[in-house]
Write a protein that binds this DNA or RNA. Structure first.
Length: 515
RNA sequence: GGUCCGUUCAUCUAAGGGUUAGGAUACAAGAUUUUCAUUCUUGUCAUAGGGGUUCGAAUCCCCUACGGACUACCA
């Protein structure tokens, strides 16, 4: 028996920016593909022209690239959705709107085989039926009971059907949902699921109005054509799984029908419901990988990248939302995730997103970065602040502060005194460590410091300790007052380290500037 | 309303019939430090409820409650 090559796809709809739930779905697909040496395909499902949002497709590609979730198929060398077939992209185009011509024959095949039919309802008529049902506190379902009452190829004479197909531009192809059949399905995460078809409706598969298929048809056809082995997607698709099973059956494609895995949803950190765009603004954390400006409303949404997250941290936290390796390890590189990932350890229940833990992941990743690398990132902000500092100097500063930071964005707050003398002094610290006797002592300290040569951490420590001891001074009082002069607050790394890095002249200047 | 899915500390989760129900985040306390942070130690906190099955249930079954998704000519 030959084992089918693993081929999975991430199939977003370009109706807006990808949110973190979508990134997680992409990640799980990517990890699964790489774990099994398979292909990870990106396909754009843009069959709803009405919801197209300019820039969304480019955003999705950029966001995945930032996360290092790189498709092995579907993109050209310069990172665009492939439109022409080549060795890497044999199934191009990968944008469903460009595959338009291909779907109609499949819809018609189902009509011919009796699994689907033409329906000529006007939108107005359907709305009226919905309203009518609503008044009776029922939900309108287009099913076996209503299809016999409507103008369809099932009820109209053949001649009229042919005529309407010619004249009417709003007809659709509907799936003829079998009556009262138990559809037994298998989900890799949830196990067996059975649904009776009597609760399902005759879904529209293809619309003459725009000549495009709906999701269900396009999805099944493309997954077949692209030889997809596993469909890993969000839980919101579980209710339409019976339809998809029935479609494979109707086409006679059950031999290559993919296996399905439905991922639980990401939920709001507080309250109820699935995580939405609004929660981010409300609770102060990003729900998008990259910042996004809505082209219509101009509304700005923040992104993980812009908020200072490392992509490694972002991926790490997403991977652990709904999956774990069964060990107590929590920090993983992308390659480690690839080696450990399996659908068998994906959790069934929804996960509330926890912004606090997201920060913790970033802090952990930040610590693994070299001082040199952090200095490069910090230099960007320093330049913006009009500060010129040598790489070597900034590197040393980063070494001092990186364990105190969660984001590179915290660096300035933690280390401004390395670049400019304090202009304000922390009130609480002043109250605690400064009294009328302090200033004269600091002036004496300045003369002690002035005599130190060379001005190294060791020498400063030695001289200051000696001075304190020989004059029976209070170590804590002196050191804290000294720190206040240099840092302006009661914080920061070893004061002798700071002093040595800042150099003698600057230290004396800062002490002597206090009057 | 109907259909389907789910339910272990506040949160993410481990435990696949036998554990003092483990870890992480957050929170709190203590230790360390010239300060802040780090680090270390400790602590508070969970099997939704009710029935079964079993010598034994977080784990298997049923009911209830709660949560979620879906219920479009959207995806």
């Amino acid at each position: 028996m030959t084992v089918r090559k693993v081929r999975v796809r991430f199939a977003p709809s370009p109706t807006g920016p990808l949110h973190i739930g979508g990134v997680r779905t992409a990640l799980f697909n990517y990890l699964f593909a790489r774990r099994h040496g398979g292909d990870f395909i990106i396909r754009i499902e843009d069959t709803d022209s009405g919801r197209f949002v300019p820039g969304a497709e480019a955003y999705i590609i950029k966001a995945l690239a930032w996360c290092n979730i790189l498709p092995s198929e579907g993109l050209t060398a310069d990172g665009k959705i492939a439109e022409q077939p080549d060795a890497r992209n044999p199934h191009a185009p990968y944008r469903q709107s460009q595959r338009k011509a291909l779907y109609r024959q499949y819809a018609e095949q189902l009509v011919e085989s009796g699994h689907a039919y033409y329906a000529f309802d006007t939108p107005e008529a359907l709305n009226a039926l919905r309203k009518e049902a609503e008044e009776k506190k029922e939900t309108f379902t287009y099913n076996c009971k209503v299809r016999t009452q409507r103008p369809t190829s099932l009820t109209l004479p053949a001649g009229e059907v042919a005529a309407r197909l010619q004249q009417d531009t709003h007809w659709v192809v509907r799936f003829k949902m079998p009556e009262n059949r138990d559809v037994r399905m298998h989900d890799l995460i949830r196990g067996e699921v059975t649904v009776n078809t009597s609760t399902l409706d005759d879904k529209v598969l293809w619309k003459a109005a725009d000549g495009l298929p709906t999701y269900h048809l396009a999805n099944i056809v493309d997954d077949r054509l692209m030889d997809i082995s596993h469909v890993i997607r969000g839980e919101e698709w579980l209710p339409s799984l019976p339809l998809h099973y029935l479609l494979y059956e109707a086409f006679g494609w059950t031999d290559t029908q993919p296996e399905f895995a439905h991922l639980s949803l990401l939920l709001k950190p507080d309250g109820k419901g699935k995580l939405s765009k609004r929660d981010g603004d409300r609770l102060g954390f990003p729900v998008f990988p990259l910042a996004w400006k809505d082209p219509l409303s101009g509304e700005l949404s923040r992104g993980y990248r812009e908020d200072g997250y490392f992509p490694e941290a972002f991926i790490n936290l997403l991977a652990l939302l709904g999956w774990n390796p069964g060990t107590e390890q929590e920090l993983f590189s992308l390659n480690e995730l690839v080696n450990l990932f399996g659908l068998d350890r994906v959790i069934k229940s929804g996960a509330k997103f926890n912004p606090d833990k997201a920060k913790w992941f970033n802090q952990q990743v930040l610590r693994t970065k070299s001082n040199e690398e952090l200095a490069q990132l910090y230099q960007v902000e320093l330049r913006e602040r009009g500060i010129t500092a040598a790489d070597d100097y900034v590197t040393q500063v980063c070494g001092f502060i990186k364990e105190r930071a969660t984001f590179v964005g915290d660096f300035w707050e933690l280390s401004a005194y390395f670049f400019t003398a304090p202009t304000a002094y922390d009130e609480k610290a002043v109250k605690k460590y400064w009294n009328p006797k302090t200033l004269p002592l600091m002036k004496v300290l300045a003369t002690v410091l002035a005599a130190i040569e060379p001005f190294t951490k060791e020498n400063i420590a030695h001289a200051v300790h000696e001075w304190i001891a020989s004059n029976s001074l209070n170590m804590g009082a002196i050191m804290n007052a000294f720190r206040l002069c240099i840092v302006g607050a009661s914080k920061g790394p070893d004061l002798f380290e700071i002093a040595a890095l800042l150099k003698k002249e600057e230290i004396l200047r800062r002490i002597n500037s206090i009057i």
